[in-house]
């Protein structure tokens, strides 16, 4: 491969990475708006059904539900059209936007053949995955 070809390849790669950053930016923005719209719709449903109830937010009800049962509960609640679970769905989607960003960074580092950073990004993903097990209710 001669030098001009090599140069051409590296600029092409750079353009690809730049496109990726644009995708990351847009995904984050849309992710936030989509999840907030879902939470807002859930909020309206919740207020229509419970708006005149008395609030009891000064007392903390500690839970010990593991994340998988929470997700099952949210799924069941959304199907039944319960407002609070629709809000919860929006919040879970919001929590997933940074994870999406991490996974895209992983792809970008892989394309750049920066294996040190592929490793570091995977380490961060692993720590977050571990939080699920550490936080498990026993």
């Amino acid at each position: 491969m001669d030098l001009t070809e090599k140069f051409k390849m590296s600029t092409e790669e750079k353009i690809e990475v730049k496109d990726f950053q644009l995708i990351v930016g847009n995904l984050l923005r849309y992710g936030v708006w989509i999840s907030l719209s879902i939470a807002f719709i859930g909020g309206i449903i919740y207020l229509m059904n419970h708006g005149s109830d008395l609030e009891n937010y000064s007392v903390f009800k500690e839970n010990d539900t593991n994340i998988f049962s929470v997700i099952t509960n949210v799924y069941d609640g959304v199907i039944l059209g319960k407002g609070e679970y629709v809000i919860f769905l929006g919040i879970i989607l919001l929590f997933l936007t940074p994870m999406l960003r991490l996974l895209i960074s992983l792809v970008v580092f892989y394309i750049e053949k920066d294996f040190l950073y592929v490793f570091i990004t995977m380490l961060v993903v692993l720590i977050i995955a571990m939080s699920i097990f550490f936080g498990f209710s026993h």
Partner: peptide
């Protein structure tokens, strides 16, 4: 965002996330 996500799972499991307040 990523830092907050690391604690979010524990928060959800312990019931810190109250939809009526978060919305």
């Amino acid at each position: 965002g990523v830092t907050a996500m690391a604690s979010s799972v524990i928060y959800i499991q312990k019931g810190y996330i109250e939809p009526g307040i978060c919305m």
